[in-house]
Design a protein around this nucleic acid. Structure first.
Lengths: 217, 217
DNA sequence: AGGTTCCGTTAGAAGCTATCACGAAACCCC
DNA sequence: GGGGTTTCGTGATAGCTTCTAACGGAACCT
């Protein structure tokens, strides 16, 4: 993943242990959710005693923060990769869905219930911007003149979204609805709110995507 | 709230203490989220010692389950009250938004990140059905013929949604998009994902609602 | 090889959930 | 109103957690 390049053997080892800690943490989160993440359990699983992990992470919160960072990076990379291979909005949508289904708890780590006190670190904002930028690029690439909505004119005001991306407000409006609608379907699906209702969530997702792509008044 | 009617004084007292426990629990959840809910802290806040609470709730999980139940009941009542006072889809949307903004953590308790192991108790399904029913009623009350979509024909199949509600599949499709789209905007807003983007989430919500209500091909 | 830096350990404090056994208070019934 | 029963709240205890601190030893760099 990261640059594990030419370093001292100490740094190599350190990075390797850090990576294994995060891997075990991901396993625990995937199977039992964030609240069940236990540093002690991770340590024991790696064959060492609890406090040893504090050499690598200042505490549980910093480990989780690092996992949040990785999740953001993973989604940003997935989006960028899809975009680089010529994916349009539909391609991004499917990339998003696949990424979310691959590890629901990773999705919720970014878009799930926030902890009131906690604030994401600074650099995640950069990743979020990167995600939004590729989404905006795909929206402007459509270059299909959409009529200005009441909301898009509102967006005209102070446009400090996405570092001043050169997209028309209508494109930003579309990007936002793309985000919120797909998140609406995805999060409810991943949370299991559709189970027992007797329909295929994938088709609802597809229906929302179709509506997003359909040109209309 | 519930029927605290003619009971023995013991049951009166018991119900009162249970209510206060839940109130303190709600305060903790509202300010620090579910993971910070501590039975010990609740007990100390009420002037009694930790294990006393186990006379009223079997454990932390049962208390949370009860809070989930209350949250469902509260939303179902809010929806029913709005519907009874003649609210249409827009009215339900605003009722939902007000209810969510009044206590974001209560909203997330229902629609937030699920704990992989945990499964909501049986009777919450009934409340969820009740919510869906009022939503479906409002959708069918529109009685505006929408063209059958690919998804609505898919819904035609096994229709065991909402206890066999007598609504056309197009109405159910609309109800589902109502749910997913508004949840998409609301959850991202409540989670703070729009902060710093320089637009008013209420207007995005309104835009989505407008799109939901606009009759179109 | 010597000196420093880093790693992992054990011990311990403070917090939590949850169980148990006990005393005491409140209730119900006669 | 007194006696028996039920219920409540307590302190003690076990086991878990995060996290700090002090110590021994290994690995590294010069």
């Amino acid at each position: 993943m990261g640059d594990t390049g030419a370093q001292t053997p100490r740094e190599r080892y350190r990075a390797q242990v850090q990576a294994e800690i995060k891997e075990r943490a991901w396993e625990q989160i995937a199977t039992a959710g964030v609240p069940a993440l236990s540093l002690n359990a991770v340590a024991k699983q790696m064959g060492m005693s609890g406090p040893a992990l504090y050499r690598y992470f200042a505490g549980r919160d910093e480990l989780i923060t690092e996992l949040v960072r990785d999740a953001y990076r993973s989604l940003a990379d997935t989006f960028r990769a899809a975009s680089d291979t010529g994916a349009d909005l539909a391609g991004l949508a499917h990339a998003l869905r696949d990424w979310a289904l691959a590890d629901p708890q990773r999705y919720f780590l970014i878009y799930g219930t926030p902890v009131p006190g906690y604030h994401a670190p600074e650099d995640t904002a950069g990743l979020a911007d990167q995600i939004m930028t590729t989404l905006l690029d795909a929206c402007t690439a459509l270059a299909e003149d959409r009529p200005a909505t009441a909301f898009s004119t509102h967006l005209e005001g102070d446009r400090h979204w996405a570092e001043g991306h050169p997209a028309p407000p209508t494109a930003l409006h579309r990007a936002l609805t793309f985000w919120t609608r797909l998140h609406g379907v995805l999060s409810l699906e991943l949370a299991g709110h559709f189970t027992g209702m007797g329909f295929d969530p994938a088709l609802l997702f597809a229906a929302e995507l179709d509506d997003l792509l359909s040109p209309r008044a």
